[in-house]
Design a protein around this nucleic acid. Structure first.
Lengths: 140, 140
DNA sequence: CTGTATCCTATATGATACTG
DNA sequence: CAGTATCATATAGGATACAG
Protein backbone atom coordinates (compact mmCIF):
# COMPACT_ATOMS: atom_id res chain seq x y z
CA UNK A 1 0.00 0.00 0.00
CA UNK A 2 1.44 3.32 -1.03
CA UNK A 3 1.95 6.16 1.40
CA UNK A 4 -1.15 8.28 1.27
CA UNK A 5 -1.10 11.97 0.56
CA UNK A 6 -2.52 12.56 4.02
CA UNK A 7 0.35 10.72 5.66
CA UNK A 8 2.91 12.64 3.69
CA UNK A 9 1.19 15.89 4.49
CA UNK A 10 1.22 15.02 8.14
CA UNK A 11 4.92 14.27 8.12
CA UNK A 12 5.66 17.54 6.37
CA UNK A 13 3.53 19.37 8.89
CA UNK A 14 5.34 17.68 11.75
CA UNK A 15 8.70 18.70 10.32
CA UNK A 16 7.54 22.22 9.85
CA UNK A 17 6.22 22.42 13.37
CA UNK A 18 9.55 21.15 14.67
CA UNK A 19 11.20 23.86 12.67
CA UNK A 20 8.93 26.48 14.13
CA UNK A 21 9.59 25.15 17.61
CA UNK A 22 13.25 25.93 17.09
CA UNK A 23 12.57 29.31 15.54
CA UNK A 24 9.06 30.46 16.39
CA UNK A 25 9.78 33.94 15.17
CA UNK A 26 9.99 32.56 11.65
CA UNK A 27 6.27 32.13 11.75
CA UNK A 28 5.74 35.80 12.35
CA UNK A 29 8.47 36.65 9.91
CA UNK A 30 6.79 34.65 7.18
CA UNK A 31 3.51 36.31 7.97
CA UNK A 32 4.98 39.75 7.72
CA UNK A 33 6.95 38.89 4.58
CA UNK A 34 3.84 39.20 2.51
CA UNK A 35 3.25 41.35 -0.51
CA UNK A 36 -0.05 42.78 0.65
CA UNK A 37 1.09 43.29 4.22
CA UNK A 38 4.02 45.30 3.00
CA UNK A 39 1.92 47.38 0.67
CA UNK A 40 -0.90 47.99 3.15
CA UNK A 41 1.42 49.00 5.95
CA UNK A 42 3.31 51.26 3.60
CA UNK A 43 0.08 52.79 2.44
CA UNK A 44 -1.41 53.27 5.89
CA UNK A 45 1.50 55.00 7.53
CA UNK A 46 2.16 57.73 5.08
CA UNK A 47 0.44 56.86 1.88
CA UNK A 48 3.76 56.04 0.34
CA UNK A 49 5.07 57.62 -2.80
CA UNK A 50 2.42 56.75 -5.29
CA UNK A 51 -0.39 58.76 -3.78
CA UNK A 52 0.37 60.44 -0.52
CA UNK A 53 -2.48 60.20 1.96
CA UNK A 54 -1.24 60.17 5.54
CA UNK A 55 -3.00 58.95 8.64
CA UNK A 56 -6.01 56.71 8.92
CA UNK A 57 -7.60 55.52 5.74
CA UNK A 58 -10.97 54.20 4.77
CA UNK A 59 -11.52 50.84 3.21
CA UNK A 60 -12.34 52.35 -0.14
CA UNK A 61 -9.29 54.58 -0.05
CA UNK A 62 -7.04 51.61 0.50
CA UNK A 63 -8.83 49.77 -2.24
CA UNK A 64 -8.18 52.58 -4.66
CA UNK A 65 -4.59 53.15 -3.57
CA UNK A 66 -3.60 49.51 -3.92
CA UNK A 67 -4.94 49.25 -7.43
CA UNK A 68 -4.09 45.61 -7.90
CA UNK A 69 -5.73 44.23 -4.78
CA UNK A 70 -9.04 42.38 -4.75
CA UNK A 71 -11.70 42.92 -2.13
CA UNK A 72 -10.99 39.52 -0.77
CA UNK A 73 -7.29 39.97 -0.22
CA UNK A 74 -7.70 43.46 1.14
CA UNK A 75 -10.28 42.40 3.72
CA UNK A 76 -8.39 39.24 4.54
CA UNK A 77 -5.08 41.00 5.03
CA UNK A 78 -6.64 43.80 7.05
CA UNK A 79 -8.30 41.26 9.33
CA UNK A 80 -5.04 39.48 9.95
CA UNK A 81 -3.32 42.76 10.65
CA UNK A 82 -6.07 43.68 13.06
CA UNK A 83 -5.83 40.31 14.74
CA UNK A 84 -2.09 40.73 15.15
CA UNK A 85 -2.64 44.15 16.69
CA UNK A 86 -0.91 46.06 13.92
CA UNK A 87 -3.90 48.08 12.80
CA UNK A 88 -7.12 49.27 14.37
CA UNK A 89 -10.50 49.01 12.72
CA UNK A 90 -12.92 51.77 13.61
CA UNK A 91 -16.56 51.62 12.60
CA UNK A 92 -18.47 54.88 12.48
CA UNK A 93 -22.23 54.30 12.18
CA UNK A 94 -22.91 56.97 9.60
CA UNK A 95 -25.64 56.43 7.06
CA UNK A 96 -23.63 54.21 4.84
CA UNK A 97 -21.28 52.85 7.43
CA UNK A 98 -17.76 54.28 7.53
CA UNK A 99 -14.77 52.13 8.45
CA UNK A 100 -11.30 53.51 8.97
CA UNK A 101 -8.05 51.70 9.48
CA UNK A 102 -5.03 53.09 11.27
CA UNK A 103 -1.73 51.81 12.53
CA UNK A 104 -1.28 50.93 16.18
CA UNK A 105 1.98 51.67 17.95
CA UNK A 106 3.07 48.15 17.12
CA UNK A 107 2.16 48.72 13.51
CA UNK A 108 4.07 51.95 13.48
CA UNK A 109 7.19 50.23 14.76
CA UNK A 110 7.02 47.79 11.88
CA UNK A 111 6.04 50.40 9.39
CA UNK A 112 9.40 52.04 9.84
CA UNK A 113 11.13 48.92 8.58
CA UNK A 114 8.56 48.53 5.83
CA UNK A 115 9.35 51.98 4.61
CA UNK A 116 13.03 51.08 4.59
CA UNK A 117 12.18 48.07 2.49
CA UNK A 118 10.10 50.14 0.13
CA UNK A 119 12.80 52.75 -0.05
CA UNK A 120 15.35 50.07 -0.86
CA UNK A 121 13.17 48.79 -3.66
CA UNK A 122 12.82 52.23 -5.15
CA UNK A 123 16.50 53.01 -4.84
CA UNK A 124 17.82 49.79 -6.31
CA UNK A 125 15.13 49.05 -8.83
CA UNK A 126 17.24 50.11 -11.78
CA UNK A 127 20.21 48.08 -10.62
CA UNK A 128 18.09 44.99 -10.22
CA UNK A 129 16.52 45.40 -13.63
CA UNK A 130 19.95 45.80 -15.17
CA UNK A 131 21.13 42.68 -13.40
CA UNK A 132 18.15 40.77 -14.69
CA UNK A 133 18.79 41.89 -18.24
CA UNK A 134 22.44 40.90 -18.00
CA UNK A 135 21.59 37.56 -16.50
CA UNK A 136 18.96 36.78 -19.10
CA UNK A 137 21.35 37.67 -21.88
CA UNK A 138 24.04 35.37 -20.56
CA UNK A 139 21.58 32.54 -20.20
CA UNK A 140 19.50 33.27 -23.29
CA UNK B 1 -21.90 34.57 -24.68
CA UNK B 2 -20.25 34.75 -21.31
CA UNK B 3 -16.97 36.49 -20.77
CA UNK B 4 -14.27 33.88 -21.03
CA UNK B 5 -11.75 33.25 -18.33
CA UNK B 6 -9.03 34.30 -20.73
CA UNK B 7 -10.69 37.67 -21.32
CA UNK B 8 -11.06 38.29 -17.63
CA UNK B 9 -7.47 37.29 -17.01
CA UNK B 10 -6.32 39.66 -19.68
CA UNK B 11 -8.25 42.53 -18.19
CA UNK B 12 -6.84 41.83 -14.76
CA UNK B 13 -3.37 41.67 -16.21
CA UNK B 14 -3.87 44.97 -17.97
CA UNK B 15 -5.00 46.59 -14.76
CA UNK B 16 -2.06 45.19 -12.90
CA UNK B 17 0.35 46.40 -15.55
CA UNK B 18 -1.17 49.84 -15.35
CA UNK B 19 -0.66 49.71 -11.63
CA UNK B 20 2.97 48.71 -12.06
CA UNK B 21 3.45 51.48 -14.59
CA UNK B 22 2.50 53.95 -11.89
CA UNK B 23 4.57 52.26 -9.23
CA UNK B 24 7.17 50.01 -10.83
CA UNK B 25 9.01 49.59 -7.56
CA UNK B 26 6.05 47.62 -6.24
CA UNK B 27 7.11 44.81 -8.51
CA UNK B 28 10.47 44.59 -6.84
CA UNK B 29 8.88 45.12 -3.46
CA UNK B 30 6.53 42.22 -3.96
CA UNK B 31 9.41 40.08 -5.09
CA UNK B 32 11.43 40.88 -2.02
CA UNK B 33 8.44 40.49 0.30
CA UNK B 34 8.75 36.76 0.14
CA UNK B 35 9.13 34.32 2.97
CA UNK B 36 12.04 32.40 1.48
CA UNK B 37 13.82 35.50 0.26
CA UNK B 38 13.71 36.93 3.75
CA UNK B 39 14.91 33.72 5.34
CA UNK B 40 17.66 33.07 2.79
CA UNK B 41 19.03 36.56 2.96
CA UNK B 42 18.92 36.46 6.73
CA UNK B 43 20.72 33.14 6.72
CA UNK B 44 23.37 34.13 4.21
CA UNK B 45 24.51 37.33 5.81
CA UNK B 46 25.15 36.14 9.30
CA UNK B 47 23.41 32.85 9.78
CA UNK B 48 20.77 34.54 11.83
CA UNK B 49 19.88 33.53 15.33
CA UNK B 50 18.90 29.92 14.89
CA UNK B 51 22.28 28.60 13.86
CA UNK B 52 24.97 31.19 13.31
CA UNK B 53 27.12 30.47 10.27
CA UNK B 54 28.47 33.67 8.81
CA UNK B 55 29.79 34.32 5.32
CA UNK B 56 29.26 32.27 2.20
CA UNK B 57 27.29 29.09 2.50
CA UNK B 58 27.00 25.92 0.52
CA UNK B 59 23.77 24.69 -0.94
CA UNK B 60 23.54 21.87 1.55
CA UNK B 61 24.23 24.20 4.45
CA UNK B 62 21.38 26.43 3.45
CA UNK B 63 19.18 23.42 2.99
CA UNK B 64 19.91 22.27 6.50
CA UNK B 65 19.62 25.70 8.06
CA UNK B 66 16.23 26.45 6.52
CA UNK B 67 14.73 23.24 7.75
CA UNK B 68 11.33 23.78 6.19
CA UNK B 69 12.44 24.52 2.64
CA UNK B 70 12.19 22.07 -0.23
CA UNK B 71 14.94 21.61 -2.80
CA UNK B 72 12.73 23.18 -5.36
CA UNK B 73 12.00 26.38 -3.50
CA UNK B 74 15.58 26.74 -2.34
CA UNK B 75 16.98 26.40 -5.84
CA UNK B 76 14.26 28.54 -7.33
CA UNK B 77 14.69 31.32 -4.82
CA UNK B 78 18.47 31.24 -5.05
CA UNK B 79 18.24 31.51 -8.83
CA UNK B 80 15.97 34.51 -8.64
CA UNK B 81 18.27 36.14 -6.13
CA UNK B 82 21.22 35.46 -8.39
CA UNK B 83 19.36 36.88 -11.36
CA UNK B 84 18.55 39.99 -9.42
CA UNK B 85 22.19 40.38 -8.48
CA UNK B 86 21.64 39.90 -4.76
CA UNK B 87 23.74 36.77 -4.38
CA UNK B 88 26.63 35.20 -6.24
CA UNK B 89 26.82 31.54 -7.15
CA UNK B 90 30.32 30.11 -7.21
CA UNK B 91 31.01 26.65 -8.56
CA UNK B 92 34.21 24.94 -7.48
CA UNK B 93 34.94 21.85 -9.60
CA UNK B 94 36.00 19.59 -6.78
CA UNK B 95 35.27 15.89 -7.00
CA UNK B 96 31.67 16.18 -5.99
CA UNK B 97 31.08 19.68 -7.18
CA UNK B 98 30.98 22.42 -4.54
CA UNK B 99 28.66 25.40 -4.90
CA UNK B 100 28.72 28.35 -2.56
CA UNK B 101 26.38 31.28 -2.31
CA UNK B 102 27.28 34.68 -0.93
CA UNK B 103 25.72 38.10 -0.78
CA UNK B 104 26.73 40.77 -3.26
CA UNK B 105 27.04 44.39 -2.16
CA UNK B 106 23.48 44.89 -3.30
CA UNK B 107 22.41 41.89 -1.30
CA UNK B 108 24.23 43.20 1.73
CA UNK B 109 22.40 46.49 1.50
CA UNK B 110 19.09 44.68 1.58
CA UNK B 111 20.21 42.21 4.19
CA UNK B 112 20.48 45.03 6.67
CA UNK B 113 16.79 45.72 6.35
CA UNK B 114 16.00 42.03 6.39
CA UNK B 115 17.76 41.69 9.68
CA UNK B 116 15.75 44.60 11.02
CA UNK B 117 12.63 42.78 9.94
CA UNK B 118 13.75 39.57 11.56
CA UNK B 119 14.74 41.42 14.67
CA UNK B 120 11.32 43.06 14.79
CA UNK B 121 9.65 39.68 14.50
CA UNK B 122 11.70 38.30 17.36
CA UNK B 123 11.13 41.32 19.55
CA UNK B 124 7.39 41.60 19.07
CA UNK B 125 6.49 37.98 18.71
CA UNK B 126 5.05 37.73 22.20
CA UNK B 127 2.99 40.88 21.77
CA UNK B 128 1.54 39.63 18.52
CA UNK B 129 0.67 36.24 19.98
CA UNK B 130 -1.04 37.96 22.89
CA UNK B 131 -2.98 40.14 20.51
CA UNK B 132 -4.06 37.10 18.56
CA UNK B 133 -5.25 35.33 21.67
CA UNK B 134 -7.21 38.38 22.77
CA UNK B 135 -8.74 38.83 19.34
CA UNK B 136 -9.73 35.18 19.06
CA UNK B 137 -11.33 35.29 22.46
CA UNK B 138 -13.41 38.32 21.63
CA UNK B 139 -14.56 36.78 18.40
CA UNK B 140 -14.87 33.18 19.61
C1' DC C 1 -20.03 51.74 1.85
C1' DT C 2 -18.12 47.73 3.65
C1' DG C 3 -18.10 43.78 3.67
C1' DT C 4 -19.39 38.11 3.34
C1' DA C 5 -20.06 33.80 0.68
C1' DT C 6 -19.23 30.97 -3.14
C1' DC C 7 -17.04 29.26 -6.95
C1' DC C 8 -13.12 28.83 -9.90
C1' DT C 9 -8.39 29.19 -11.73
C1' DA C 10 -3.46 30.01 -11.44
C1' DT C 11 0.34 29.74 -8.91
C1' DA C 12 3.24 28.23 -5.18
C1' DT C 13 5.09 24.58 -3.14
C1' DG C 14 6.14 19.81 -1.88
C1' DA C 15 7.35 14.78 -3.04
C1' DT C 16 9.70 11.90 -5.92
C1' DA C 17 12.71 10.20 -9.26
C1' DC C 18 16.54 11.01 -12.16
C1' DT C 19 21.30 13.31 -13.82
C1' DG C 20 26.22 15.31 -14.25
C1' DC D 1 26.85 17.34 -3.90
C1' DA D 2 23.90 20.06 -6.37
C1' DG D 3 20.82 20.19 -8.90
C1' DT D 4 16.71 19.19 -12.92
C1' DA D 5 12.22 17.31 -14.31
C1' DT D 6 7.79 15.81 -13.40
C1' DC D 7 3.77 15.17 -11.07
C1' DA D 8 0.43 16.14 -7.43
C1' DT D 9 -1.79 19.22 -4.27
C1' DA D 10 -2.78 23.11 -1.37
C1' DT D 11 -3.23 27.56 -1.17
C1' DA D 12 -3.47 32.17 -2.97
C1' DG D 13 -6.09 34.98 -5.18
C1' DG D 14 -9.80 36.79 -8.37
C1' DA D 15 -14.89 37.10 -10.21
C1' DT D 16 -19.34 37.32 -9.01
C1' DA D 17 -23.36 37.74 -6.43
C1' DC D 18 -25.50 38.94 -2.27
C1' DA D 19 -26.20 41.34 2.58
C1' DG D 20 -26.23 44.71 6.59
Amino acid sequence: MTTSAAQRRERARAEYNAFLAVCPSHQLLARVSDKWVTLILSALGSGGDCAGEPGAMRYSELSRLLAGVSQKMLTQTLRSLERDGLVTRTVTPTVPVTVTYALTDLGLSLQHTMRALKSWAETNMDDVFDNRATYDERVG
